[in-house]
Design a protein around this nucleic acid. Structure first.
Lengths: 223, 223
DNA sequence: GGTCGATTTTAAGCAAATCTTAAGAATTAA
DNA sequence: TTAATTCTTAAGATTTGCTTAAAATCGACC
């Protein structure tokens, strides 16, 4: 795990750097915003996590955060800063930071928060869950309340698509495009048939998993 | 997005609950550890995020966190607690919590930290708000004071148009053009009929949401 | 290559929700 | 008071989605 620290106070920088090295991380440091951003962007993907001070000579931490997010939406960014207003915290988090630590902080807490961010790396991101439904994309299996439900390929693909888009209505056009690979006008009721099949297999005690939005499409019910 | 709050102080519980509902989340509350854990486990996967107080009657927050993690490694858990020792924070984070907020905290910060955890899933929430009205364009749902109002497609489209043009009068011509896609002369009273329908569904206690500007058109009332 | 079973697609009838029309009632401005 | 505009209602037309069954396609196996 490689971490980049962007911090201008030399004492803090070396303190964290040494501490993290002892914990087995590979650590690079940048003493100002300009070089920090450059290092982060130049080898985008190289770092597994960024520690960024808010107030920096050159480019500010916020700007670094924004630019890094643009280039890479995944990499966790933790702010380390003396600024202590609620607005600052909120602003930083909304700009794309994953956590925000107020100075002075304890090294142990920093370490714990770093571990939280790195937790779950290459751990089963291959499962989709929703309520009592578990979809294992590797094993190509679906479980309802722990017992397996047999789905056909198309049923599986459709359910996966709906689940991945949980929270928004999927239009028939987008469904037919993503699940059936038809990118032009279509005139068929396959979708209805498959929705019907899924409902039959997945609905328990009247609880409908799939909500119909008349005139628009379908979505996973949030209720 | 559905959130479970496990918190025994009634004031805090209802405060957070209402606040989050206003932000468009579905929220459940549990007043003690036993029931909280039960709710979390009974419908594992139902909740997208857990807010947990550390000190609870019944089962402690830490224990809840541990058990929930066991059942579901994905769901984010945020601790809300008065305990303020560094060891506590570290302990909670190591036990599986994703974040740790010390009381008293600001609601805005809580909200921002929740959004961080849900980021990627919650991404691109597309909402229009006006007073006690919340329009979720992704889910194609409308909420008035937190409870859903069923709108048809046309009603929805009309309301969206008015809301997007909040503050200015929408002429019948522009409405028929944008909502009905009629770009030539028309001779119909559909608009009136739909305005009527919207008013019936959305007006509470005489407060009219949609104002008639005689001879011109309609607009969302700014009052 | 042929056969059987499973899966996918098409088609059609039915039911229900939604949209539109139209006409009379109510309201407003001059 | 009057004429124009807007509101309200309800019925008929249309669209949309559900369900079912049968036809077409695919794939494994002999």
């Amino acid at each position: 795990m490689r971490i980049l620290i962007i911090e201008d106070e030399e004492g803090i920088l070396s303190l964290i750097k040494e501490g993290l090295k002892e914990e087995g991380f590979a650590v690079d440091g940048a003493p100002d915003g300009t070089r920090g951003l450059q290092m982060a962007l130049d080898n985008n993907g190289k770092y597994d996590l960024l520690l960024v001070d808010w107030m920096l000579p050159g480019i500010s931490g916020i700007e670094i955060c924004r630019r890094v997010r643009q280039a890479n939406p995944q990499v966790p960014v933790i702010f380390l800063t003396a600024r202590d207003m609620v607005q600052d915290t909120v602003f930083a988090l909304e700009t794309g930071a994953n956590d925000y630590l107020k100075k002075p902080f304890s090294f142990d807490e920093l370490l714990a928060r770093i571990r939280v961010q790195l937790r779950g790396r290459d751990e089963g991101t291959n499962q989709l869950r929703h309520r009592n439904l578990l979809m294992d994309l590797n094993k190509h299996q679906v479980f309802l309340d722990g017992t397996e439900v047999q789905l056909t390929q198309k049923e599986f693909a459709l359910l996966e698509f709906l689940l991945r888009n949980r929270g928004k209505v999927c239009s028939r056009t987008s469904i037919i495009g993503h699940v059936w690979d038809i990118h032009f006008d279509y005139d068929t009721s396959v979708i209805d048939v498959y929705i019907n099949a899924l409902r039959k297999k997945l609905n328990v005690d009247g609880q409908s998993l799939i909500r119909t939005v008349r005139g628009i499409g379908y979505m996973i019910s949030e209720l």
